[in-house]
Design a protein around this nucleic acid. Structure first.
Length: 484
DNA sequence: ATGTCC
């Protein structure tokens, strides 16, 4: 176990486990946290998992952890690991089971107060038209050919089918599509699981919310993002559902033998990986890209349903004043091939972000023109009571964390602990008394996602902001919550 | 996260 004594403090919110801590480390491990947060991270296996990732062949810079770090499969959630191509490894555990789990934020153009009288009706309609819960299937049933188009085209498929507006794509990370996707790299089971789940929310921490912008921290950035205090916004948090889960399951199994074949020593079998250029790695990468595209199409289809619900359920006057535009769409479970400056040299890297959000600053050409002087919107969900943050990516993040930031508050209680401590029905009543309209498939699931099951988002964002990885732009709090 | 064990 890593202890406090093994850590070297670099700055108020930056800590390092030096290479000498363990003989198999190739680079130091670095975490962004306050001293208080560090305590909790040392109690479970998260820090040890981070150190384990510092042994992966080809890793460059540091094994990094964001302030929302907690235990995950192999890699900690909140972890960022970059490996040098072509010989560095790619690891499915560095992406996670929910490939391209991500967040999409829509502004509405209407004041939250104007929606208040209609919240019950809106939330009931959203709950009925966006399928949610474990194993949920949606209104679409894709033919094999349609599925291939989704896997290849991502959000663009949905837009072309009429589930969206042409400029939606401009405001999604990678325009909602990774070009290396190959539907043929998926197992038949992964493909079958994907056929009926497009346009569905899923379960766990996935949600659909109507929020109110309660605070603007950075007027210029908020203006560029089109956010104003008092306005209603919509948050969509979901991923690639059973299809992405199956891609990860298949890859973990296949790479178990790859690790042996390529003679890779890993300290934890959950860190299975393969050299990026190998057949196994390339098959996983193309399948992962396809699953990422599925997730983007999923969020795009849900976006369209939300727009339809606002149009159908609001009175004509309010409906006319609404315009649900995409602020941005980020993924926080993915491995990307990106170019970064490593020690003064531009290098092609495989950047694993697992529970970490890309946070590119103004210098990167990937940003939409509208945000070019501000930085990429970094969307950080918190909890169903206290709300969420919009931050802006920075050039400092490019120097420090391969352009990455935290992705949420991070869990403070395990799901089991949360169920023990919280009764779902009482939580729902508490939220409704606070004028938060709640719709859920599972009161047990609601309890697992209770506010007290998460770290304090304000603290996580404070560390992120003070470290310069992403800067505060606006905060929103929930008016209506759908939990799968 | 997940047809929460093919």
């Amino acid at each position: 176990m890593v202890t406090r004594a093994d850590l070297r403090q670099l700055s108020p919110f930056e800590w390092e486990v030096p290479v000498g801590y363990r003989a198999d480390m190739l680079v130091p491990a670095r975490v962004y946290m306050s001293e208080e947060m560090l305590g909790a991270a040392l109690e479970d296996r998260a820090m040890e998992q981070l150190v384990n990732t510092a042994t992966l062949p080809g890793i460059v810079g540091h094994a990094l952890a964001m302030p929302d770090m907690h235990m995950g499969y192999g890699f900690p959630i909140g972890g960022v690991v970059a490996t040098a191509l072509p010989d560095g490894v790619i690891s499915p555990g560095g992406v996670g089971y929910d490939i391209n789990c991500g967040v999409r934020l829509l502004r509405t153009g209407i004041e939250a107060d104007a929606l208040l009288p209609h919240m019950d009706r809106l939330m009931t309609a959203l709950f009925s038209r966006v399928a949610s819960g474990v194993g949920a299937s949606g209104a679409l049933r894709l033919s094999p050919g349609q599925l291939d188009a989704v896997l290849h085209e991502g959000a663009g498929w949905a837009v072309a089918q009429g589930h969206g507006l042409a400029n939606d794509l401009e405001f999604a990370e990678d325009n909602g599509r990774l070009a290396e996707a190959d539907g043929g790299a998926l197992s038949p089971r992964a493909r079958e699981r994907g056929r009926g789940q497009l346009g569905t929310l899923g379960s766990g921490n996935h949600f659909l919310e109507i929020d109110r912008v309660v605070q603007v921290h950075d007027q210029a950035a908020a203006q560029a993002y089109g956010l104003t205090v008092g306005e209603a916004v919509v948050w969509i948090h979901c991923g690639s559902r059973g299809l992405g889960h199956q891609v990860c399951t298949d890859a973990v199994r296949e790479m178990q033998s790859a690790v042996r074949r390529y003679g890779i020593d890993i300290p934890d079998r959950e860190l299975v990986c393969a050299p990026y250029g190998s057949e196994e790695a390339q098959r996983y990468y193309r399948a992962m890209c396809a699953a990422a595209n599925y997730a983007w199409a999923n969020r795009q289809v849900i976006t369209h349903i939300v727009r339809q619900v606002f149009e159908d359920e609001l009175p004509a006057e309010e409906s006319r004043r609404c315009r649900l535009d995409l602020v941005y769409d980020v993924c926080h479970n993915i491995a990307k091939v990106e170019e970064h400056d490593v020690g003064g040299r531009l290098q092609r890297l495989c950047v694993h972000r697992k529970g970490a959000t890309r946070a590119f600053g103004p210098s990167r050409p990937e940003l939409p023109e509208r945000y070019g002087r501000i930085g990429q919107p970094v969307l950080i969900p918190g909890n169903m009571e206290d709300g969420s943050y919009v931050l802006a990516g920075t050039d400092l993040a490019l120097e420090r964390t391969f352009g990455s930031s935290c992705h949420g508050a991070g869990r403070a209680l395990s799901r089991k602990q949360a169920r023990r401590e919280v009764e779902g029905g009482a939580l729902r009543d508490h939220l409704e008394r606070s004028s938060i309209v709640v719709r859920t498939d599972s009161l047990g699931g609601l309890a697992e996602e209770a506010p007290q099951a998460y770290k304090d988002l304000d603290l996580v964002v404070e560390v992120t902001h003070a470290s310069g990885l992403a800067t505060r732009v606006a905060k929103t709090t929930p008016m209506g919550v759908i939990k799968g």
